[in-house]
Each structure stands twice: as C-alpha cells, then as structure tokens.
Design a protein around this nucleic acid. Structure first.
Lengths: 145, 145
DNA sequence: CTGCTTGCAAAGGCTTTGCAGAACA
DNA sequence: TGTTCTGCAAAGCCTTTGCAAGCAG
C-alpha cells in the first residue's frame, strides 16, 4: 500500500480526496495541491504562506483543520521533532528523519538506511500505531553554548 | 559513560551539580532531588507540582530555567513526543520510548529491545547529536474518531 | 560586595475554539 | 434546503522574557 505518486492535477486531487471520504472543497483542494505536489515537510504556517502566495484565500483556521484532517486519514504524516511546531510530511511511506537542531531543517533518511530489528513487545493492552526514528544532528562547527 | 545511579541525599545532589559546574542553589537542589530520585518522565508542570507538593517554594520560571539547564548539561534528557509539552527523562542512558497516544503515557523500551543497525550517512556538514526512537501505541479497544 | 538566581507577571508563539456567514450536495 | 465548511477573532496552553529583589561565593 501507500505510494500515491503525489498527484498534481485538480482532478486527481479531487479524486484522491473523495477516495478518503473527504468532500473536496475549494480550500481543501488548494491545500492538497500545495502539500501533496511533492515530498516535503511543511509547518502549518508554511502551508498558509504558500497558499496565500499562490493567491488562494485560505484562513489559518482552515489550514489547521485541513492538515489535521489529512493527517487523520493518512494523506500526510505528522512529524513531531520540535516542541514549538508540528511538521506535516507529504511522504506517507515508511521512512525516518534527520532533524538539524541548528537550522530546524527536517530531511528524510534514505529508505532502508535505518534498520529496526523486530519491534519489541508492546506494553500490555496496546497496539502499535507507528514508529518514528529521529536522528538529531548539529551543523559541524556550530558553537555550542 | 552515563549511569549515575540516581543519587538521593542532599549532599550527593550538591556534589553532582558541582560536577556539572552548576552552582547548587536551594531551588536547583530541590528540583534535582525530585527529578533525579528515580527513573521517570516528567513535564515541567509535573515537576512544579511535585515541588509545591513537597513544600518547596519554586516558581514556574525557575522550573523551566532549571530543567533547561539540566538538559543542556546532560543531567536529564528532553523527550519530544507530544507537540503540547516536553518531557524530561531522568534516565540519561541510551534508550528509547513507547508513547501511548490515548493516555499520554511515556514508557521506556527495555534496553537492547530495539536495534538500530549502523547509523546512515548524515547530511553533509552535520554531526550526530542523538537518536530518538519512538514507538507510538494506542490502547487496544480505544475507539478511533 | 558583585554577579548569578529567583519570582512574578506580562508577553509570545502555535494551535484550538465559537459562532455567523458561505459553500456543498 | 439541511448540513458541512470557512473565516475571523478571541481564547488557551506551554514556554520565554523583563526586571526588581534575594542568595551564593
């Protein structure tokens, strides 16, 4: 599963949203076009900025609603690496991340470059919902404290 | 390295702080006693609550300052799993976490239960600062949406 | 003494919420 | 036409900051 090949045309987006039982309103389609156009990591604020920049009139509230909705249905993945903001990753296939503490840059770890053996036993009464691996890095030469 | 055996006596705490070049003020010692007394995951708010509950007069600002300081010197580890708050882990040795999305509970993954092969090549110009593995789980039977 | 710390309250940044008007089916 | 969605602004939560008073060495 997974591997939508990041559609672009309005029609494809509409189709994609419908498939996820999301009614394709104008704003959702615009946001989807922006976010799903290519593999990328965007904060809510960046999505809003890109939308405005494209001339779409979308409000902050709608961006949050929409990204939350997309995350819930699996169109995007939330990446939690920074306490101050959530990143949305348009690449939903299984992969992990580097997070640069100095620049705030979030990048993908090439698929298969990190191998988790088998999952450990989960706490009793729980089922797995996802595995995140984050490798925090620092720009070489960056002065600490 | 690592493996402080979670000291308890005031004298040990003072000694520990000095070793980390932190001047052992009354508040820092109290907070350290609370936090480092055993392996645990606490939010800033919980640290404050525990302090007040013990009769220590410590302000919220001081809790944040102090936990930030402790994290910087490596006395505790920040765990970022929830966009809404930071957890501080008194267990500084290398290990990973389960995070229960339904209860907000953060628990340790037994050492060695997760094996990362070798680290992948880091982005150019960066050096590793830490690796976090978070296995998100959901209470079995919890109803989604 | 001199500087580092603390505490209070205000400010700040991200996200959520309430509610009226607009769009969708 | 009934329901769902949008947008604005206000509210909320966690965290940081400014500044005067207090403690450490």
């Amino acid at each position: 599963m997974s591997a939508h090949n990041l559609p672009k045309s309005r029609a494809e987006i509409v189709e994609l949203l419908r498939r996820h039982r999301i009614s394709p309103t104008q704003q959702r389609v615009e946001i989807a076009q922006i976010v799903l156009s290519k593999p990328q990591h965007l904060s809510a604020d960046e999505v809003l900025a890109l939308a405005n920049q494209r001339g779409s009139r979308v409000s902050k509230a709608t961006v949050y609603n929409t990204m939350g909705l997309f995350a819930r249905v699996g169109l995007v993945r939330e990446v939690i690496v920074d306490p101050s903001k959530v990143f949305y990753d348009s690449n939903v296939s299984e992969h992990h991340h580097f997070y640069n503490l100095d620049t705030g840059e979030l990048t993908d770890i090439p698929a298969g470059a990190v191998e988790l053996g088998s999952l450990p036993d989960l706490p009793q009464g729980t089922e797995a919902a996802g595995v995140d691996v984050i490798i925090r890095v620092r720009s070489s030469g960056a002065v600490g404290a």
